[in-house]
């Protein structure tokens, strides 16, 4: 038994905006009966203002698919097309008070239908199917969709991809490909915002250096049987003494370089670490 929120139950038992708009301004159809869920979204759009005046849906699927579709229509009604396109699958799931994780694909289907309807309204042609690489044969999921959903929802595991797109949930033969795609997506490091370092007073600097040495550096050395002691901090010069196993260690020089690098990263880029 799925744990559905009260909101999901309410929208499933009494769905709003059921049906089909006659002569609609936009139609979005996604899914198929074979896959187990399908959604047809029809919109009435005011040409002058670009505002969605009415939205109706028809869904073949489980309770959460019906509820997600109904919520989608509620969310977009009254919005302009430009505003509506910003709605994500997470907005749908959140409005419903959350969905069981295995059911997130229902919210993704809602978002896809919206996208398809807007593309239809704009008169854009969908890129030819041939270009899209089909990854999951069982549920007809393309690489493009996996990438988009993974990035939008910050998904990092195959299981999450399956929950959100169904890909990999059938015969499972595409799982290695999904793993590759995920590796590829998350290998690109998002450049971190450079940290704005506040100017520190001498006392603050000393306290910070001691803190880093105590909490980050010494425990690591101790784990290898080594240790160190801070002899003095003089301006940008940090004078330390290696202790225990570190004393005899031929890698002592490297250790000091590493400590210096860490302190330069976290405190001040001009710090020099010396042994006393």
């Amino acid at each position: 038994m799925w744990e559905y929120s009260e909101k999901v139950k309410e929208f499933f038992l009494h769905p709003k905006n059921v049906g089909e708009i006659e002569n609609p301004d936009a139609v979005g159809e996604v899914g198929s009966m074979i896959c187990g869920d399908a959604l047809k979204l029809t919109l009435r759009i005011d040409k002058e203002t670009g505002r969605i005046i009415d939205a109706k849906f028809q869904t073949f699927g489980c309770a959460s698919a019906i509820a997600s579709s109904s919520v989608l229509t509620e969310l977009i009604k009254g919005k302009t097309v430009d505003e509506a396109i910003k709605i994500t699958n997470r907005d749908i799931a959140e409005y419903l008070g959350g969905l069981p994780k295995e059911k997130m694909h229902c919210s993704v289907m809602g978002r896809e239908a919206l996208e398809a309807a807007i593309v239809n309204y704009m008169g854009e042609r969908r890129p030819p199917e041939a270009k899209e690489k089909l990854i999951c044969q069982c549920f007809e999921v393309t690489e493009e969709k996996i990438r988009r959903v993974a990035i939008e929802n910050h998904l990092t595991t195959v299981e999450e991809i399956t929950n959100y797109t169904k890909a990999g949930g059938g015969c499972g033969s595409c799982i290695p490909q999904i793993e590759e795609i995920l590796k590829d997506i998350w290998a690109i490091k998002i450049p971190e915002m450079p940290k704005v370092k506040k100017r520190l007073t001498n006392l603050q600097k000393i306290a910070l250096i001691q803190d880093i040495i105590e909490k980050e550096i010494r425990p690591r050395l101790q784990a290898d049987g080594g240790d160190l002691e801070v002899i003095d901090i003089d301006g940008k010069r940090v004078i330390i003494a290696l202790r225990a196993m570190c004393v005899e260690c031929p890698m002592g020089g490297v250790t000091i370089d590493n400590i210096q690098e860490k302190l330069r990263e976290l405190v001040d880029e001009n710090i020099v670490v010396e042994t006393g």
Binding site: V18, G19, E20, M33, A38, Q58, T59, F60, I66
Partner: peptide, 8 residues
């Protein structure tokens, strides 16, 4: 079936 796009 009235909810379903295939039913109608």
């Amino acid at each position: 079936r009235t909810l379903s796009p295939y039913g109608k």
